[in-house]
Design a protein around this nucleic acid. Sequence first.
DNA 1: CTTGAAATCTTCTAATC
DNA 2: GATTAGAAGATTTCAAG
Lengths: 166, 166
Amino acid sequence: MSESVVLDTVDLHILRLLQNDARTTYREIAAEVGVAASTCLDRVARLRRSGVILGHQLRLDPAKLGRGLQALLSVQVRPHRRELIKPFVERIRGLPESRSLFHLTGPDDYLVLVAVADTADLQRLVVDEFTSRPEVARVETRLVFQQWDCGPLMPPSSAIPPATRS
Amino acid sequence: MSESVVLDTVDLHILRLLQNDARTTYREIAAEVGVAASTCLDRVARLRRSGVILGHQLRLDPAKLGRGLQALLSVQVRPHRRELIKPFVERIRGLPESRSLFHLTGPDDYLVLVAVADTADLQRLVVDEFTSRPEVARVETRLVFQQWDCGPLMPPSSAIPPATRS
DNA sequence: CTTGAAATCTTCTAATC
DNA sequence: GATTAGAAGATTTCAAG
């Protein structure tokens, strides 16, 4: 299902440009990469079909939407059994405050990134949606001072094939 | 700089649709929301100018790009002084393995989400780029079993104004 | 905010390599 | 099989009301 895909330099160039700005037009990409616009369309369609491209997402500023405070909640769910964790995950994903959720190794099972209005809002969230729940054994809250997104996601250089594609 | 912005129901409706799929056309949005396409264009341009919309991003599957393993690294930087942390942050952001970086409250100063090929790659990364660095006092590594993105980011209902905008 | 027209972009087809 | 150029169809964008 999630096997690695063979990408040539054209695919990589297109991905780099689109990661920089997902609204870049096929004409611009074509001019930059040096192929026809219809080829770019083809390549992007293939990258979508093969699952490399999962979707196009809008990045919003939580602070501008009245959610100026972000926090990471480390959560222990006990007992850690399927019939308990599935509803837990679905409930957390559905919270309007949740931004992303990780299932991790280590003593803390889950890490939840939340965006809230202020510390009072955070307290309400932690108490009402986490610590007061029977399946939640422990919650550790850390505030986010600052967050950075990193460079484009690229395959390791060892994974880049020498020249042509299959 | 990051003050909250007044959004009416049209803005919110547009944001919800675009967060669902950032490639939704203005015609579709217009039909759904019940305004003219040019109004949608206007609204989106305004949301961009006001900083609510930070950009359009392509979501990629790391596993398909030969980075099938993700991990979270909790890092203590000592001493925690500006002249040390700025280059640290810039270096981490520049690593091809880094996906996002958080500066946090609590004993661990930074949390880094990284995507690597396998555990050998992760070990190399941790040793070469973290533990062997003089400013890095401690690193704790946790693997990501699974990750979920949560629902659209929306303002708290208390922040939604009654009817009209300025 | 809307309409409607102009400019641009996407997408398809047929032909080529 | 992949790519191209060009045409046809959509979409975006602008000007005017």
